[in-house]
Design a protein around this nucleic acid. Structure first.
Length: 425
RNA sequence: GGAGAGGUGGCAGAGUGGUCUAUUGCGGCAGUCUUGAAAACUGCUGAGUCGCAAGGCUCCGGGGGUUCGAAUCCCUCCCUCUCCGCCA
């Protein structure tokens, strides 16, 4: 959520910033809502003040044993007007809140302008894609040939965009998770969390999935509960901060959590239909930071470095791009994507997305800390990034480490997690 | 699932229709004293929002209701605790 004060003070300036990401802020609509609200609010509060005063006087009068009848009539008259005003005001405020809740974040000044993925800017490329001297296969063909990756079985059990893994591939998938968690907790100083995989609507509003992106979620229909399966651990983890005031000494908070993630993939029909790239259910190891406002840029660099460390240890070629204004998620002020090399697609594909939300999520969820110098409660900055998407990492290992005979070499860093196994198949 | 008890500021814990502008304690902050610290004493100390300000409004788990007036009464939902039952 944007700062309503800033929006009120400089609507044209905010509109200009949002235009960078292709969002049209309807300044006229906003100003009309705002002026209506202002009038109605001050009128309503004046009526409330009058009612409170009169009621108090009734109390005094009764205390003195006086007749309060004239006062009753006086209050009665104002009551109808007040009731009408209050309901009009709360309707207007709901409209205003919804308007605010749907606005995207303002892009950071360092984010390049652009309309789409094509305008993202590559920052660095690490590692060299391997030259194969045999016809390569994609991960789905490799996995199915091994008899350890079964899309048909998953389709029977549930439907498309799910997978069943068996034996060594299932084990390697689990090993990747352990390897990532160990690296982040032991080497990068993260606190490991286990969290719920189902969250309520307040949490989804806090991180920004609601009200705008309900169609991306798997909702839970249970009585009248508005719950959903988590689309990412970002939701339960970041919402730990909701309605809390952090002690400055506890900052930065650095959390890591491994969870499954569930996405409806509405609107992605036809894209990445084959294989494990785009599933309704996948595993992710997520990194979440909460920092003081002045420190989020350096935190962002550290965070992306921690995600990169996983790929470096696995010796997988990758590149880092900074997303342009038009390709960023709505809540992000700045996003780095890490893309891993996939030989079968002859290109780099997203395996991690690391975003700085600045105070956008913090304002929605009232996530604050007590500034020790000003002694005031200030909004935190929040960040998160995948470290990494486990399914896609498995895909990358299969494709980059494949052998001519269809077997898979196990990356050195992973061998200790597989009981010293050096090859799969 | 059944029965009961509860949800109040950072924490503990009063308040059961009207000076509640939410008592008090702990914690925190500032000061006095002190070489320094502790102790003692004094003062300040919930959040949000509108306003240049004075000041106003809202918030006692969520929502709704009764009333001139609700932390307090009623309805409903959520959560926590105790006991029983069931159970990974």
């Amino acid at each position: 959520m944007l700062d309503p004060k800033r929006l009120r003070a400089n609507p044209q300036e905010v509109a200009g910033q949002l235009a960078r990401r292709g969002y049209v802020l309807e300044v006229a609509t906003f100003e009309k809502l705002e002026s209506q609200r202002k009038t109605l609010q001050s009128e309503t509060e004046a009526l409330q003040a009058a009612r409170n005063k009169a009621s108090k006087e009734i109390g005094f009068a009764k205390g003195r044993g006086e007749d309060a009848t004239p006062l009753f009539e006086q209050v009665e008259n104002a009551k109808l007007k007040l009731a009408a005003n209050e309901s009009a005001l709360s309707a207007l405020q709901a409209e205003f809140d919804d308007f605010l809740a749907r606005l995207p974040n303002i892009p950071h000044a360092s984010v390049p302008d652009g309309k789409s993925e094509a305008d993202n800017v590559e920052l660095r490329r690490i590692g060299t894609p391997r030259a194969f001297d045999f016809p390569i296969k994609d991960h789905a063909d490799l996995g199915e040939a091994l008899g350890q990756m079964d899309f048909a079985a998953a389709a029977k059990i549930t439907g498309s965009r799910f997978v069943v893994l068996r034996r060594d591939l299932a084990r390697m998938h689990r090993a990747l998770t352990q390897f990532m968690l160990d690296t982040h907790t032991l080497e990068h100083g993260y606190e490991e969390l286990y969290v719920p995989y189902i969250v309520n609507a307040d949490s989804l509003r806090g991180t920004g999935q609601l009200p705008k992106f309900r169609e991306d979620l798997f909702g839970i229909q249970l009585a009248d509960r508005d719950w959903a399966l988590i689309p990412t651990a970002e939701v339960p983890v970041t919402n730990l901060l909701r309605d809390e005031i952090q002690d400055a000494a506890a900052l930065p908070r650095k959390w890591v959590a491994h969870t499954p993630c569930f996405r409806s993939e509405a609107g992605s029909g036809g894209r990445d239909i084959k294989g494990m790239i785009r599933q309704h259910q996948f595993e992710k190891v997520e990194l979440v930071w909460a920092v003081e406002p002045g420190k989020s840029c350096e935190a962002h660099e550290a965070l992306v470095g921690h995600a990169e460390a996983i790929l470096e240890k696995l010796d997988l070629p990758y590149r880092v791009v900074v997303l342009c204004t038009g390709d960023m998620g709505a809540g992000a002020a700045k996003t780095y994507d890490i893309e891993v090399w996939l030989p079968s697609q002859n290109t780099y594909r997203e395996i991690s997305s690391c975003s700085n939300f600045e105070d956008f999520q913090a304002r929605r969820m009232m996530a604050r800390y007590r500034d020790p110098t000003t002694k005031k409660n200030e909004l935190l900055h929040t960040l998160n990034g995948s470290g990494l998407a486990v399914g896609r990492t498995l895909v990358a290992v299969l494709e980059n480490y494949q052998r001519a005979d269809g077997r898979i070499d196990v990356p050195m860093a992973l061998q200790p997690y597989l009981g010293g196994m050096k090859v799969i198949g």
